[in-house]
């Protein structure tokens, strides 16, 4: 069942010399987890903003209303945790979920490893903990569509891994259709069902790659490692946004 269709003909920022997003089209099945990988500045964040409805200024259509994807069912995890520093953790969560009772709240916090932090202000928490709150905020509303904008960058590997595990755990309950934007191919391979590689701007899809590996995965799993190497061997300039394909090696 198609849950999200994105069909962007053109996105140009006002005053920019060229387009940020070129013709770019893809569709996601309900509950699918897709990662969009491309070089920095390729317009990945612009793409997420368009899907989220934060930016109406583009040519094309985004169909996110199929299958009950309606208003208020969008979860968004930003590059920074973006918690309101003057609200406690509890009030930050109640901002998106006003009816949250204390019992549910405490249980939810305990589940993401934040027991006892309800009355704390975000700035007193570590960066990793703030990101947990941000993830929890996105899942509390039981989103049908979840957008992740490089939420795990600038974290050390163990912290990132623990957040991968948390994301997988939370997803199992809610199963939102998920779009993760990242420039980290290992992260994409560890998390997603499918990886879309995009070019430098104007962003276009240059490769649509299914990740048929058993879950849960870690970024340094042998299988992830192999797929990473195979991809790099076949498309050495893929991560730079170029689709120069080498001939298929015999052993692959």
């Amino acid at each position: 069942m198609t849950a999200l269709t994105v069909d962007i003909q053109r996105k140009r920022h006002p005053g920019a010399a060229g387009d940020t997003i070129g013709p770019l089209r893809f569709a996601l099945r309900s509950g699918e987890f897709v990662a969009i990988v491309g070089p920095s500045g390729a317009g990945k964040t612009s793409l997420l903003k368009i899907i989220a409805g934060l930016d109406p200024d583009f040519v094309g259509t985004v169909g996110a209303k199929v299958d009950g994807l309606g208003s208020g069912k969008l979860g968004f995890v930003f590059q920074e945790p973006r918690l309101l520093p003057w609200l406690t953790v509890a009030d930050n969560l109640r901002l998106v979920m006003p009816a949250l009772d204390t019992g549910t709240l405490d249980a939810a916090l305990a589940r993401v490893g934040l027991a006892g932090t309800a009355q704390q202000f975000p700035l007193r928490l570590s960066g990793g903990m703030q990101r947990r709150v941000a993830l929890l905020r996105a899942f509390l509303i039981r989103p049908a569509l979840l957008l992740l904008d490089e939420p795990f960058i600038s974290l050390d590997v163990p912290t990132a891994e623990s957040l991968y595990a948390l994301l997988a755990d939370l997803r199992r309950d809610v199963m939102p259709t998920t779009v993760l934007v990242t420039h980290d191919l290992r992260e994409a391979l560890a998390l997603a069902d499918r990886v879309l590689f995009v070019s430098r701007s104007p962003a276009r899809i240059i490769l649509d790659h299914a990740v048929n590996l058993p879950k849960p995965r870690r970024r340094d799993d042998e299988a992830v490692d192999q797929m990473h190497r195979a991809l790099m061997a076949r498309h050495p300039e893929l991560l730079g946004g170029l689709q120069s394909t080498r001939p298929e090696p015999e052993s692959a």
Binding site: A52, L74, F76, F78, R82, L84, L87, L95, I141
Partner: peptide, 24 residues
């Protein structure tokens, strides 16, 4: 703007945005 976007994405009612995000 980043914090205002949080309100926008999560469809926080206008009055709550004013009270919780703008006024502080």
């Amino acid at each position: 703007t980043q914090l205002l976007q949080v309100g926008e994405v999560y469809r926080v009612p206008r009055l709550t945005v004013l009270r919780r995000i703008v006024l502080p």
